Computed example of a mutant assay.
Amino acid sequence: MTGLSTHILDLTHGTPASNVTIQLYFQNQLEWKLIKTAVTNSDGRLDTPLLLEEDMKIGNYELIFHIGDYFKSKNIEQLDYPFLGSVPIRFGISDPKAHYHVPLLVSPWGYQTYRGS
C-alpha cells in the first residue's frame, strides 16, 4: 500500500482521539498550500488516506492536528491559550511510491510522532 495516512492516540485517556480536524499542506516554492482537511473517526484514524498513490509527490508537507478543541471536548481544564492548541508536523516525502504513516501520540502537555508503517 502506498500513500499517506495518520492516526491519533490520546495518551491522557489511553484511547484513540476521535473528531479531531487535521489539515494537510504542501510546500510550493516558499508558500504552503492547503491540499486537504479531514476529521478522525472513532478509531482516531481517517476513513480514507490523506494522499493516495496517484496524489503522492516529492516535497515538503505539513500536518496540523487541531488538538486543543479535542481536549476541550473531553473536559480537560484548558487555559484561554492552551499549551497545545494545534500540533504542526513537517516532514518530507522523497519516495512517492512508498507508504508514509505519521501518527500522533498526544496529551494536553506534550506529543510524539514517528514514521510508522
Rank of each mutant, 00 (worst) to 15 (best):
L11P: 01
F71I: 10
R115P: 00
F83M: 12
Q23G: 04
V87D: 02
F71G: 01
T40R: 01
I22Q: 06
S73A: 15
D43P: 00
V39I: 15
Q29F: 11
D10L: 13
Q27S: 03
W32G: 00
I89R: 06
S94G: 09
E31C: 01
H99G: 08
L11G: 06
H101L: 03
K97A: 15
S117Y: 08
L63F: 14
P49N: 14
D10T: 14
V102Q: 09
T21Q: 14
G44M: 11
G59T: 08
T12A: 07
F65K: 01
F26S: 04
L34R: 09
K57E: 08
V106P: 04
L63A: 05
S107R: 08
M1P: 02
W32C: 00
P108Y: 05
L105M: 11
L84H: 10
S107A: 12
R115F: 15
G68T: 12
T2W: 06
T113D: 01
W109R: 13
F65T: 02
I64S: 04
T21N: 13
L105A: 10
D80L: 10
R45E: 15
G59L: 04
A17G: 08
S42N: 12
Y70T: 04
M1I: 03
P96K: 07
R90N: 14
T2E: 08
G85E: 14
T37I: 15
I89H: 06
T40H: 03
L24I: 10
S18R: 10
T40E: 09
Y61V: 02
L4H: 06
L51Y: 06
T15G: 00
K36T: 10
L9F: 15
D43V: 11
L24W: 14
K74E: 00
G92A: 14
P16W: 12
G59W: 06
L104I: 08
G3D: 01
D80M: 07
M1D: 08
M56G: 04
G14E: 07
V20E: 02
D95T: 11
D10M: 13
H99Q: 12
L9R: 15
H13N: 05
I67Q: 03
I64T: 13
P16D: 05
K36G: 00
L105E: 06
S94A: 05
M56F: 05
L63D: 02
